[in-house]
Amino acid sequence: MYANSSKLLGGAIVATAAIVTFSILFMVQFGLPLAFAANQIAPNVILTVNVPTVCEVSLSPTTLNFGTVIPSQNTIYTNQNVIDTNNGNGGATIWVYGGNWIGANTALTFGVANTTWATSNTAYGSGHALTQISTSTGVSATPQAPGTVWWGLGIPAGQTANVYSQNIIITNVC
């Protein structure tokens, strides 16, 4: 009888230990509090403010006029530039792309690559051909100093006379 009781007692002890162990593992896994924390009052209150880094874009001018250009001729860069002002608190890099030139008669067009951009007032042939894919100019626009991109245009030989227009997109990447 005593041996029988000891077996039952031993089984009960093992069962209790297993239940307690399982409960602890369960609560630790799922983050349930094992004990209630006493009320605490922090002696100091610390406030932190996170000011993110931002960049902005503001362009001037927003139109470019190259005047009258005859076929096979191109413009010089003088007075054809766009100033990119960044009023944020972080720097940005200027990227550019554009579309084809389209005439008032929409059947008349010529390619976007006839427009060139440069980082200084240089000759037309020294500029980079504009494309329809956004491309980095390497020019920085910072809160301390705006960036400037210069623009030129060449008319293909034999291009039909018309009034042509183009869209140029300038973006600040930050």
């Binding site: 470019l64 006029n65 766009v82 227009s165 183009q166 140029i168 997109i169 930050c174």
Partner: peptide, 21 residues
């Protein structure tokens, strides 16, 4: 890109549109 929309037109020239990349 996020581009600022523009209704500007400039026959005989280029329209410059600004944005952020």
């Amino acid at each position: 890109q996020v581009l600022a929309a523009t209704n500007a037109s400039n026959p005989g020239g280029a329209v410059i549109q600004g944005g952020l990349g």
